[in-house]
Amino acid sequence: MTPSAKRDWLVPTGLIMLSAVPVIAGAARAAELTGGATVTPDNARFFASPVPVLVHIVGASLYCLLGAFQFAPGFRRRRPGWHRLAGRLLIPCGLAAALSGLWMTLLYPRPPIDHVLVTPMRLVFGTAMFCCIVLGFAAIRRRDVPRHRAWMARGYAIGLGAGTQVLTHLPWMLLAAQPNGIGRAVLMLAGWVINLAVVEGALRRQPARPSRSTQRRVAASAGVLASQ
């Protein structure tokens, strides 16, 4: 593998590693629900209504793992058909993850470990993820590739929040104990904010390219001027 090819896979590899803990935790939860585990106060809400959490686990896991490959530019260029095919799967997976997350936030009992502020934060970021994916889909339907990439990257950043939240919680857990209350709320918020800040920074560093609609307007204007 050439050095440039290795660099091409740095970001996807990092994203997969960041997804690993939430994906493994989700798989363990799914095995618990489908394997007849003992009902406890911590998991009773999932056993009472298992479908939303199973939809969330499957949708979010596929979205995070498969979505990581969309951030390999060279692979995307070499496999444009794969990129489009994966996108057709990623959009429903991302929407399913966002909507099931919103459903659980609204209808599951709030865990004692969560501060009351966690509920509105989950609603805000779950709704934002849903909107980013819809806007990204609408942009590619218009052949507006730059906006499509930007909105999809933002949606992915929010969806990967659980992975970054593992990192924000880790120092606290190593130095003290499992965070709760307002401390946990701040650490969860930090996970989403860090991801979005990284994405926005990356988007600003990219050279601005005119969208297809802008190119068409410029071409139409040039045609009008040429005919005068």
Rank of each mutant, 00 (worst) to 15 (best):
A153C: 05
G163A: 06
V166N: 07
F137A: 11
R149S: 07
L175I: 01
A153S: 11
H169C: 02
P146Q: 08
M173D: 08
V134N: 08
V166K: 11
R149E: 15
L170H: 11
L135Q: 15
L167G: 06
W172R: 13
L135N: 13
I158V: 10
G136Y: 01
L170Q: 12
A150W: 01
L135V: 00
L160E: 13
I140Q: 08
R154T: 02
F137C: 01
R147L: 09
C132M: 13
P146A: 04
V166L: 00
H148G: 05
H169Y: 10
L170V: 04
D144W: 03
T164G: 06
L160A: 15
R147H: 15
L174Y: 10
A153Y: 02
P171E: 12
I158M: 04
A150P: 04
G161I: 04
G155S: 06
I140G: 06
A138K: 15
R147M: 11
A153G: 07
Y156C: 03
L167Y: 12
Q165V: 06
R143M: 02
Y156D: 07
M152N: 13
F137E: 15
R141I: 02
V166I: 12
L175C: 13
W151A: 02
G163D: 11
Q165S: 08
A157Y: 05
G163F: 05
L174P: 08
H169D: 06
Y156V: 00
